[in-house]
Design a protein around this nucleic acid. Structure first.
Lengths: 300, 300
DNA sequence: CGCGTTTACGCCTCACGTAAACATC
DNA sequence: GATGTTTACGTGAGGCGTAAACGCG
């Protein structure tokens, strides 16, 4: 029995599939499968039931899981106790953020973490909020920063930031008008991220609650492209207040208000409920210290 | 980091030397040394101080030891939980007994253990009580059954049997006399096991307390040989009461009494205080159930 | 047919033991 | 020189990834 085998078993049991566990451990799926098979031989009992499409834990596997968890926790303790590198935060950490975060505070977070935990390798994954949640639950990600609290029972959420949004439009498109009216919404294109993105869901909810309807819709999966489209006068869209102030200063766009105002969007730090590694607490703190959706990256 | 490395570290830290630990793990000393060296590389700190003649734990090693112990305990738990073989009593067990035990209840103990714990390999070691204690403390043995309670701080003792002794002599040597007198002791050889044996120490103590002195002494390290010598009329000696009864029935020897009577000898189950493996409790129970110094092996 | 898992196979690392060297008492 | 530990080195097992096969939806 080796720690590698137990690690393979633990992650295979914790995440959605052997393949995801293999990715997390940076080994091939074949290797992971063999590690588990070898462990099963040594224990004399199968740990997974392979009869179905996906492998599921057997009774023996369920019994072994907490022991394996304690074992790996002890191994971690040893590294914390004797390894001098960064409070025991080591290895790889895959996490997900939205594009909004990727273009604002993500660089700060990475810089902060690289300095504080030099032995930690970060692997950010930029995607839409809904996709991030799914990948988090399946075990592909260690944590994600997503708009709103997760409804999934396997995921814990903790609020870390409120972000206010305003409307943006090209000056030529709206003339001297500085308010979003029902007529404006009907007559101009509404440019948004896909529906799976947090800000878009917030906007859809706001429209429904206020009995408003958008005219032409334009969905784009790239925030920078959306900004370009808006600046070019193709339509109107939403941006965090801080961004708008900066873009407005360059006269690229004007900021519009709406009645009622758009609600603030609450962003949360989300992680798997069954993942209690100290790594997560440290990174939650790091995110809390660096999160700031209001100032876009210097590139803008 | 592997379980093998931690096992090597744990036993090397627990017993007297790397060599003893290597024997216990059934690997060469070179292999054990390399496992520990590899572990030290992975942790970034030396675990042993090799400056002296014998390696001693460093501060880091002292910190790691309890973690390693918990780790190996967890590994054991896993086997108990999922392995169906014999209540989790597996592997090798080296233990020590005196010759008296070896020729009486040792076969019963081995038979009993083989039936109850088929996955357990017993390795009995027959030697004198004092030697057994030393080897127990150095880690070469898992437990020993020895006369008297150990004075060593690292060894725990638990009483398991009282054995009464009487004097034995060839009929021709003593005629109709059935009592050991000071004169008899002076005029005949006293045949004993070496001074390190429990019964011999008891006898020496009895002689000193009663101001008696033996004439010629004859020490032999083999109990069967002593019995032959006594039967041949070379001298007198001590045997457990049960043995004497059986030997007397064959008219090989006669049983003598002494004033005051010889004290009963208390035998104890001894083990390393820092060795808390469940294995030991099971074997203590097995010994308690089979221990019987009074009836010699059918060979006699 | 796509997805998830296992099997086959060649490669190559790495852990092992023997034996010699080194160090300490 | 005896005891205890490390180093050198040749050998063999076994863990690895690629790729093909298998099995369930």
């Amino acid at each position: 029995m080796t720690l590698k085998q137990l690690d393979a078993f633990y992650w295979a049991a914790s995440v959605a599939s052997f393949g995801v566990a293999a990715e997390r451990l940076h080994v091939s799926q074949s290797t992971l499968s063999k590690r588990i098979a070898e462990l099963e031989v040594q224990l004399g009992k199968p740990l997974f039931d392979r009869s179905g499409h996906r492998a599921s834990l057997t009774e023996a596997g369920v019994q072994l899981l907490p022991l394996a968890r304690r074992m790996l926790g002890l191994a971690e303790e040893m590294h914390v106790l004797l390894g001098e590198t960064g409070d025991g935060v080591r290895g790889h950490c895959r996490f997900g953020v939205g594009e909004l975060a990727a273009l604002t505070w993500l660089p700060d977070l990475v810089a902060h973490a690289r300095e504080k935990y030099p032995a930690l390798v970060l692997e950010p994954c930029v995607d839409l909020g809904a996709a991030l949640e799914r990948r988090l639950e399946s075990g592909e990600l260690d944590f994600a920063v997503v708009a709103g609290f997760s409804q999934r029972s396997g995921i814990s959420s903790e609020a870390i930031a409120q972000v206010g949004f305003s409307w943006a439009a090209a000056p030529a498109l709206v003339g001297r008008q500085r308010v979003v009216t029902a007529a404006l919404l009907q007559n101009t294109a509404l440019i948004t991220m896909p529906p799976a993105a947090g800000p878009t869901r917030m906007l859809e909810h706001w429209l429904a609650v206020n009995n408003l309807e958008a005219g032409r819709r334009l969905t784009c999966n790239n925030l920078a492209a959306i900004a370009s489209l808006i600046a070019a006068g193709v339509g109107i869209g939403l941006f965090p207040n801080g961004w708008l102030r900066q873009m407005a200063e360059r006269n690229a766009v004007v900021q519009l208000k709406s009645r009622p105002a758009l609600p603030e969007l609450e962003y949360t730090f989300q992680w798997r409920r069954d993942d209690a590694r100290p790594l997560l607490g440290r990174l939650r703190d790091a995110v809390t210290q660096t999160v700031d959706f209001s100032k876009p990256s210097p590139l803008w």
